[in-house]
Amino acid sequence: MIYIHKSGSINVRQEETFDVKAAWKKVSPSMIRRTDRFIQLSLLGAYNTIGQEEIPEESALYMASGQGNLAVFKRLRDQRYIYKQPPKPVDFINSLSNTSGFYVAQFFGLLGKNLNVSRHGLVIENILMLAQADLEQGREKQILLGGVDELQEPLDFTRRTLGLCDDHLLGEGSNWLLLSAQKEEALASIEVLSDQMDSLKLKAYFASLQQKTQVAFGGRCESVWVEEILKLYDFELFEYASECDFYETNPLFALHRFVEEGRGELLFINTFNAQYRVIKVVLI
């Protein structure tokens, strides 16, 4: 079993404007140069979780993203193919997948493993499973785990890329958890169920549950299916979607909100390609 010791968030809705650069500059004016919005989101989300507190330098840093730092790739592409110029050195460096991880590690003085996972669908579930395995097997003592996504324009293109319907609102965010295998002083336990399930198997799992529980659903779960599940089983919906538009890593926002304001136990259900995964959080 692994435990959440801290959680923090930056969450920006589609219609909101949020000056990430100005916000980060207030925190660390000396670490603003050469950072772009994706890196600033990463830093600010992690800072909202850890603050000024020192964490052991051997702590690992696991970062997940649906699209990674796509904005910098767009700039590189435009420089190369539209303006016919070589890339700016800083853009080239920031295009490396784990550059934002480097900045976060540098800010908190972390020297441990620095892992970066980027994929569409269930990326938070996958990186949590890695964290779970590494903490339970004692490979890591503590992991700062974050999910970061930057809103990409044009929105229609982004929706198509993500495989979403036209009515999906898109947001951006940076949500983080500090995890360890130590129960003392923890806020909650967290577990990703090891089985990846189809709809039938998931329903069988729901039917096997003994006690009334709260549930929340990922943005890829269809609303008709969600309504069906809520009717079929004695679940209470933990509402977070009204505060958060879609981005691939927003399950961490839901978990953060549950840790902040929830009670009891939450099952977070998410899907990709008709396969489902369940994250179970129990507040302590």
Partner: peptide, 9 residues
């Protein structure tokens, strides 16, 4: 040195 590259560009 990275600034040198940026100035060069």
């Amino acid at each position: 040195s990275l600034d040198a590259l940026q100035i060069s560009m």
